[in-house]
């Protein structure tokens, strides 16, 4: 007795829907000379970049009254460059008729037009985003200073003694913080400082500062910590 059931033999032919990847050839013009010039320059450097891929002409951007291009010529030109156009989409009227005559499939003639070019950003109602976060990947050496105006700063390398990190927002240091860190430089009392290794010379939030001249608190020294401002304008340092 066989352990598994024998699979049923596959039928000789099956029909299923599919979506295959192909190339869209977006036509912005149907003028023969313009098309010819652009085809030549486009493929000059890489004549066989497309190794026989299927392609569809996208006509949605053409003006409604555009004269049909010489479809047969266009197909021949593209085939000689390794592209195989077989259909047009979003074509109507004369354009579609000429394409059908040239042996091209006419797809969703009444379908929705392709998305128009993204509109240029208007200056009405800009999103009131905060200043972007500033990222620092390199170690901050003694004497170096970085300032994140209006936002937060993320430092991914060590901040050496004598270096200064300043931000109007919060400060994140994912490495030893051995220099100075000044968060909320323009008075934001909700700003905080985070580090994975607290060994700072000085920390400050909204102008309230603390130095570490005396032996630091052993609960947080050289450990991950958060520094924030408590109600009574006092620096609070907590282990993370």
């Amino acid at each position: 007795m066989p352990r598994r059931r024998e699979p049923r033999p596959a039928p000789a032919l099956e029909l299923k829907t599919t979506r295959f990847a192909g190339i869209q050839i977006i036509l912005n013009s149907t003028e023969h000379a313009a098309l010819n010039t652009h085809l030549t320059t486009l493929f000059a450097a890489t004549p066989d970049f497309f190794g026989g891929e299927a392609a569809v002409f996208e006509c949605g951007r053409l003006p409604a009254d555009a004269a049909p291009p010489d479809w047969a010529w266009l197909v021949q030109e593209l085939k000689s460059r390794g592209l195989n156009p077989f259909a047009v989409q979003n074509a109507s009227g004369e354009l579609a008729a000429a394409a059908a005559q040239a042996g091209l499939l006419v797809l969703n003639a009444a379908g929705p037009a392709p998305a128009p070019e993204p509109a240029p950003p208007t200056d009405t109602a800009p999103v009131p985003a905060a200043a972007p976060t500033r990222f620092v990947d390199k170690p901050l050496r003694s004497g170096q200073r970085v300032y994140a105006a209006g936002g937060d700063i993320v430092v991914l390398a060590a901040v050496s003694p004598g270096a200064e990190v300043i931000a109007d927002g919060s400060i994140h240091v994912y490495a030893p913080l051995k220099g100075r860190a000044l968060a909320g430089a323009r008075g934001d009392t909700s700003a905080r400082i985070f580090t994975t290794h607290l060994e700072a010379e000085l920390v400050s939030i909204a102008g309230v500062y603390r130095t570490f001249d005396a032996a630091p608190d052993t609960a947080v020294a050289k450990k991950p910590a958060q520094i924030r401002l408590a109600e009574a304008s006092q620096i609070v340092i907590e282990p993370l």
């Binding site: 901050l140 050496r141 003694s142 170096q144 270096a163």
Partner: peptide, 13 residues
């Protein structure tokens, strides 16, 4: 060590 750190920063900038 501190001065070396400083000079490394200058090299980087």
């Amino acid at each position: 060590v501190r001065d070396s750190d400083r000079i490394l920063g200058i090299i980087q900038s």
